[in-house]
């Protein structure tokens, strides 16, 4: 193990490590802690200059206010409306593409695979004008479908990379044996490969959920109205209205961050397995 386990070191080293850990964590999360604290301060605290102390009383009404007086709940709903179908669509499509590229050897396999991989890295701006134009011409500008369709297509690149590598690592004998038995190819996919892909599907679902929930660029490019804008773009426009009403900005930020954070803590193992794919040989 590297570095040497602290348990093998002197008592003093162990104590200082134990002391250092929480200090480092607090420093690391300082911006977050500050925002969390500010989000439960009554406006009067900020007005009287109480920026760093504890709130005079916990003002949970800030949350109520951003959610209902400023309709943040709507943006949250919009985010779910976009995110959930995207997750389903991207994961489903990449199960298919991943199976095709991971199981079969055919001419063009690697080329197609690396097109997906490369497409996944391109800057969004090179897609922006044509995608916006296409969306307008399809008559779905400023609707959830505009975002859902684009996100599914774009995420398919990343998801294919993931699924293909996952499937390629499955034991080939399983598939070969089924072929010898005369099982049709689509049945091999449905009955043999798909059940084995559950961990990959779980990992991708949480990752794509987080990516899409946190998307800001496409939300601003493809939607404009409060009825369709996801929470990232909504928060940005509310921030303009709130002009440094930091108790509201903070509460809004916390609310917007909550769903992916909850997802992360609930599915931590899958989340990290997905992100670190390829980080070990």
């Amino acid at each position: 193990m590297f570095p040497r386990p602290i348990a093998q070191r002197s008592q003093a080293a162990q104590w200082s490590y134990a002391a250092l850990l929480p200090i480092a964590l607090i420093l690391w999360l300082l911006p977050l802690l500050g925002i969390a604290m500010t989000s439960i301060k009554p406006a009067s605290d900020l007005a009287s200059g109480n920026y760093f102390g504890l709130p005079t009383h916990p003002a949970f009404e800030n949350y109520w206010s951003v959610l209902f007086d400023f309709d943040l709940w709507r943006y949250i709903r919009n985010s779910f409306v976009v995110t959930i179908p995207t997750v389903i669509g991207a994961v489903a499509l990449s199960c298919l593409t991943g199976f095709a590229l991971g199981t079969y050897r055919f001419k063009g396999n690697l080329l197609i695979f690396f097109l997906f991989v490369a497409g996944n890295f391109v800057p969004f701006q090179i897609l922006m004008v044509p995608v916006r134009d296409l969306t307008l011409r399809m008559g779905i500008y400023d609707t959830p479908q505009a975002l859902i369709l684009f996100h599914i297509a774009f995420q398919t690149g990343f998801c294919t990379l993931f699924m293909r590598n996952f499937i390629a690592a499955l034991p080939r004998e399983l598939i070969e044996a089924a072929r010898v038995e005369g099982v049709a190819e689509w049945q091999i996919f449905w009955h043999i490969v798909l059940p084995l892909m559950k961990p990959a599907i779980a990992a991708l679902s949480v990752l794509v959920f987080t990516f899409i929930w946190n998307d800001f660029f496409w939300a601003t490019v493809l939607t404009t109205s409060a009825d369709t804008r996801p929470v990232t773009a909504g928060l940005s426009s509310l921030n303009g209205q709130w002009v440094a009403a930091w108790h509201l900005v903070s509460a809004g930020s916390i609310v917007a961050a909550l769903p992916p954070v909850a997802m992360f803590f609930l599915m931590q193992k899958h989340f990290i397995a997905g992100l670190t794919l390829g980080a070990v040989k």
Binding site: P31, L32, N214, L235, S236
Partner: peptide, 12 residues
């Protein structure tokens, strides 16, 4: 911090 949206990071 990685899980949080960059919009929220920016506001923080």
């Amino acid at each position: 911090p990685f899980v949080i949206s960059q919009v929220v990071v920016g506001l923080m």
